[in-house]
Design a protein around this nucleic acid. Structure first.
Length: 553
RNA sequence: UGGCCUAUGGUGUAAUUGGCAACACAGCGGAUUCUGGUUCCGUUAUUCCAGGUUCAAGUCCUGGUAGGCCAGCCA
């Protein structure tokens, strides 16, 4: 492809290209290693794009590996949800793997480490281990059990597996360096005793390996050449390499990159859960959530997310990307693929006093720039709805919508001129009257006179009434988690992140199915929500159109 | 007063590896338009600081400064 070489470089791509060119690897293998304890979010999408994207770009392979080493947090439900979300993004994996498939191998390797005097069983409890680990500035103290013989350790470790000891009473630790400035090297725990049903291994095990003792070896077993992860694992890399070296197994290479941060967005699992539990949102797939399920329901497309990730790039710098970039990618994608429809979200009735009693049908293109979308017919009747803010009784200079005595075009239909403003007792404009020019049917007149404004409209009698859910950012500040003393991220919640309205759309709207995305002309992109029922349509606002008029006002 | 990592317009990134700092988003201005959308054109603004090496430094060296991560039997 032509734009293949336009792809901006990043340091990981460079490393891979170099490794391939130098012959270090004939082909590359990556992996995406989620822990099945929650739903995927936009942050995961970055990792997915990198892991799958790079593998595909270099004709390599990518495994989906579930990092299921902690049975207390993991569930099959999440395994399925994760697979579904990755597939939705449009990626397919070469092998589906589970760290738990390697438990036996990992156990054997642990025994070999014990035999080499590189691991020992520690009887200290969690509290003691923590206390003796030292601090960032002080070295740790060796465990009193650190110098047990390999024979004793092996026996103890086997009995740990056999279930001879209660939960938490013993751990297996790597024997490295209690004085290391890198805390991860101060004899990290390799195994802990946990009597808990595992989603795949059932009750076969009562000891479970830790992430550090599992991840690198899993990579190695799968011949992962480039193990890409986020920055917080930088400090773990020496340990990752240590296990691989001591075990003398295939040397996978861990490379870290910065995770994605977005303005007005949080992805912290605990806080997302809190939002649900305290009912600030309606669930993991609430369209305001940064979860892939939420974004899908909102109307985000996989293409827009991938495009976004390509533009965000890959670095080791902790940055925060403007949400507007994601919205730009979304709009750009939707612009070319969403059929156009008309819907009035905040209606005011207009009676076209000289309009005939019979309905007139006008034809409009489904896409202004792509004839392959075809056309559809829209009914115009004597009474219509227009957008409340498309009328102003006393308009400013540059306002070119409807006003008393002012003429506008009803999109796809004809010209109308406002002839009367009807108000209630409080002086609010409640209804309008207008006259249409019969000559203007079709959208233009023989005299070719210009009308400044074109507005959208919906018949007041022949329409589809629906519920509109107008979504906005869940948070008002760029970094919702950056709060002053005494405040929490909840204080940054946008009270208007969801506005529910009753709206009216053209009849064609009834032809759409759940998940369809259309553009309500002059308003925004909308996605048909799964909550829709035969007698209550629900359209979610995916993202509004850019509005350079509103900005000026 | 520990270790590791990072620093380029407002934001996110690039820079043929020492050779005219560029792209996108956002902003601003204009043209086109039956969407105040799209499209097109234009425009504002950048190498954390101080030294050093060099004909030449965003890039190399030294020293600062600022930010991120690490003291789970989480991943």
């Amino acid at each position: 492809m032509a734009d293949e070489d336009k792809k901006p470089s990043n340091f990981i791509r460079d490393i891979i290209a170099e490794d391939l060119q130098s012959g270090k690897h004939e082909a590359i293998q990556t992996r995406f290693p989620p822990e099945p304890n929650g739903y995927l979010h936009i942050g995961h999408a970055k990792a997915i794009t990198i892991d799958f994207g790079l593998a595909r770009e270099f004709n390599g392979k990518v495994n989906l590996r579930f990092d299921d080493t902690n049975p207390v947090k993991e569930e099959t439900e999440f395994v399925d949800a994760i697979k579904e979300d990755i597939a939705w993004l449009g990626w397919s994996w070469d092998k589906e793997c589970y760290a738990s498939d390697y438990f036996e191998q990992l156990f054997e390797w642990a025994c070999s480490l014990i035999e080499k005097g590189l691991a020992y069983v520690d009887d200290q409890n969690g509290e003691e281990i923590r206390l003796n680990r030292g601090t960032l500035t002080e070295p740790g103290k060796p465990s009193p059990f650190r110098d047990r013989t390999p024979e004793e350790n092996l026996d103890l470790f086997q009995r740990m597996r056999a279930g001879d000891f209660p939960d938490g009473s013993k751990v297996l630790r790597a024997k490295i360096d209690m004085a290391s400035p890198n805390m991860n090297l101060r004899d990290p725990v390799m195994y802990r005793i946990i009597r808990q049903h595992h989603h795949r291994t059932g009750d076969k095990w009562c000891i479970y390996p830790t992430y550090d003792y599992t991840h690198g070896q899993s990579d190695s077993l799968e011949n992962v050449t480039h193990s890409l992860c986020s920055l917080e694992f930088e400090d773990h890399r020496p340990l990752y390499n240590w296990f691989i070296e001591k075990l003398e197994i295939f040397p996978s290479r861990q490379i870290e990159f910065a995770r994605l941060n977005l303005t007005r967005t949080i992805v912290t699992k605990r806080k997302l859960r809190q939002l649900i539990e305290e009912q600030h949102v309606h669930g993991w797939d609430d369209p305001r959530m940064p979860t892939l399920r939420g974004m899908r329901r909102r109307g985000f497309t996989p293409e827009s997310i991938k495009d976004f990730m390509a533009r965000v790039g890959v670095t080791k710098f902790n940055s925060r990307t403007d949400f507007a970039l994601l919205e730009h990618c979304l709009r750009q994608d939707l612009e070319s693929r969403a059929p156009r429809r008309m819907a009035v979200l905040d209606p005011i009735k207009v009676t076209i006093t000289n309009f005939p009693e019979e309905t007139e049908w006008y034809e409009g293109p489904n896409h202004p720039g792509d004839a392959s979308f075809g056309t559809r017919k829209v009914p115009l009747t004597r009474e219509i709805y227009i957008e409340r803010d498309d009328f102003m009784e006393d308009p400013p200079k540059k306002y070119f919508r409807l006003a008393p005595g002012r003429e506008v075009r009803l999109r796809y239909a004809c010209y109308i001129t406002c002839t009367k403003v009807i108000k209630d007792e409080a002086g609010n404009v409640v209804e309008l009257e207008a006259e249409f020019d019969p000559e203007s049917r079709g959208g233009s007149t023989p005299d070719n006179r210009k009308v400044k404004g074109t507005i959208h409209w919906v018949s007041a009698t022949e329409n589809v009434k629906f519920e509109g859910r107008l979504y906005d950012h869940l948070f008002m500040s760029d970094d919702p988690e950056d709060v002053e003393e005494g405040h929490t991220f909840l204080d940054n919640l946008n009270p208007e992140s969801l506005q529910v309205i009753t709206a009216y759309g053209e009849p064609e709207l009834a032809q759409h199915g759940v998940g369809d995305i259309v553009q309500f002309e002059r308003k925004g992109y909308y996605c048909l929500d799964p909550d829709s029922t035969p007698d209550q349509w629900v359209w979610n606002r995916t993202v509004s159109l850019k509005d350079s008029w509103a900005k000026k006002g």
